[in-house]
């Protein structure tokens, strides 16, 4: 514990888990449920991830760094470090309309990047494509989803 700092002070300075929970818990549970089929296990994983987040917040607070997560994408990347790697062959994008608009390859590339955070080079090797074509596919997938989910 740092000089002149009580435990209560430190706990209060942990990133506001309640705020993050209110904003992202639904998204996080939806995300985890795509990787872990069993709902109760997925819920337990979500609890563990928030707990790890609090630990990291506490650690960073003591080293005077900023909190670790400020956006959904940061939370997704953080969560992936605690989640098992699962090959998602059939994407389960919520709306069927998205599936209809995305080609099989676009779905595949997006899912590998989104749920496994694999590098472009690794995806290229896995799908036997060039890195440029993977980037291009990822870009197209984003464009299609933006069109369907965007404002």
């Amino acid at each position: 514990m740092l000089k002149g700092q009580t435990e209560a002070d430190m706990i209060l300075k942990v990133p506001d888990i309640r705020l993050l929970y209110n904003k992202y818990s639904g998204m996080l549970l939806g995300f985890i449920s795509q990787i872990i089929d069993d709902r109760s296990q997925a819920e337990q994983q979500m609890i563990n991830i928030f707990k790890e987040l609090a630990k990291n917040g506490l650690k960073n607070n003591l080293t005077t760094q900023s909190s670790v997560v400020t956006s959904w994408n940061e939370l997704r990347k953080f969560a992936l470090t605690y989640l098992p790697v699962k090959t998602i062959t059939q994407p389960s994008m919520a709306k069927p309309v998205i599936k209809q608009h995305l080609t099989e390859q676009e779905q595949q590339v997006f899912n590998i990047a989104y749920y496994q955070k694999q590098s472009v080079s690794a995806i290229a090797v896995q799908l036997k494509q060039t890195e440029d074509s993977i980037r291009e596919t990822l870009k197209k997938a984003f464009a299609v989803m933006k069109q369907n989910y965007g404002n």
């Binding site: 514990m1 435990e7 430190m10 706990i11 942990v14 888990i17 309640r18 929970y21 818990s25 639904g26 998204m27 549970l29 939806g30 995300f31 449920s33 795509q34 819920e43 979500m46 609890i47 563990n48 928030f50 707990k51 609090a54 630990k55 506490l58 650690k59 003591l62 956006s71 959904w72 994408n73 997704r76 389960s92 994008m93 919520a94 709306k95 989803m145 933006k146 989910y149 965007g150």
Partner: peptide
């Protein structure tokens, strides 16, 4: 990405936040 995640979100069951707070309540650095 956030909009996509919102479309796929699943509301956690009631009491989950309390479980999380209990889990992090005893952390000591």
């Amino acid at each position: 990405l956030e909009r996509i995640a919102q479309q796929m979100s699943i509301n956690p069951p009631p009491g989950t936040l309390e479980k999380i707070e209990d889990a992090i309540g005893g952390l000591v650095k």
